[in-house]
Simulated scan of single mutants.
Amino acid sequence: MFKLFGRTKTNDVFRARSPERDRRSDALRVASIAETIDLALQACRAEHAGLGRRLSDVLARAAMTVGNDADEYLDREPANTALQNVFSFEIANGERRLRELEANIHRFETLKATVVASFPEHSEVLATRP
């Protein structure tokens, strides 16, 4: 009767995997999650650094088009005014994106800390991660 419910032959004995194999499997899963978080962190940090450099460059160029006289905005050349408007728009977008990236970096760091705290038995695998 029980033979109908089993997928193995009646003379086979049930055997679970060894605890060591279970531990290795779990460690690989945890390491996979940690690696994915690390890759996302690296991508965010790289984008943040690159955007920060480009934004600094645009700020320097925008400062040159503003001029340094108190009434510069009154007699500024139309081409410089148009360029200043473009710079202002792009600077605002760049600063917005930098804030988003900083928030994402913080969130990914929090996720990483949560993984480390949630799986203390796999600290040796997580310690090798940056």
Rank of each mutant, 00 (worst) to 15 (best):
E47C: 02
G50N: 10
V66D: 03
N68E: 10
R54D: 12
C44P: 01
E47T: 06
L41Q: 01
D69E: 12
R61M: 12
H48W: 10
A63P: 02
V58L: 15
Q42N: 12
L51D: 05
E72I: 01
V58F: 05
T65K: 05
M64L: 15
L59V: 07
L59S: 10
R53G: 10
M64S: 11
T65N: 06
S56I: 04
S56Q: 14
V58M: 14
H48G: 08
A70E: 08
D57I: 05
L74G: 00
R54N: 05
N68K: 13
T65R: 06
M64R: 11
G67R: 00
D69T: 07
E72C: 04
R45N: 05
Y73I: 02
V58S: 07
A49N: 07
Q42C: 11
L59P: 05
D57C: 06
N68R: 10
H48F: 12
D71M: 05
T65A: 10
H48C: 11
S56E: 14
V66T: 08
A43P: 02
N68P: 02
A49P: 04
L55W: 00
L74T: 01
D57S: 09
E47D: 09
A40W: 08
D75Y: 15
R54F: 07
A40L: 14
A62R: 06
G50H: 13
D71W: 06
D38H: 07
V66N: 07
D57T: 12
A40Q: 14
D71Y: 05
S56W: 02
I37D: 03
G50S: 14
L55A: 02
L51G: 04
R61Q: 13
L55P: 00
A63Y: 04
A60N: 07
E47S: 06
Y73M: 11
A49Y: 11
R61T: 08
G67T: 00
L51Y: 03
Y73Q: 10
A62N: 15
A70N: 01
R53K: 13
G52M: 08
R45G: 02
R54G: 12
D38N: 11
L39V: 15
Q42S: 13
R54E: 14
R61W: 07
L41E: 01
A43G: 05
Y73S: 14
H48V: 09
A43F: 05
L55Y: 03
A40P: 03
R53P: 02
A49R: 13
D75T: 12
G52H: 13
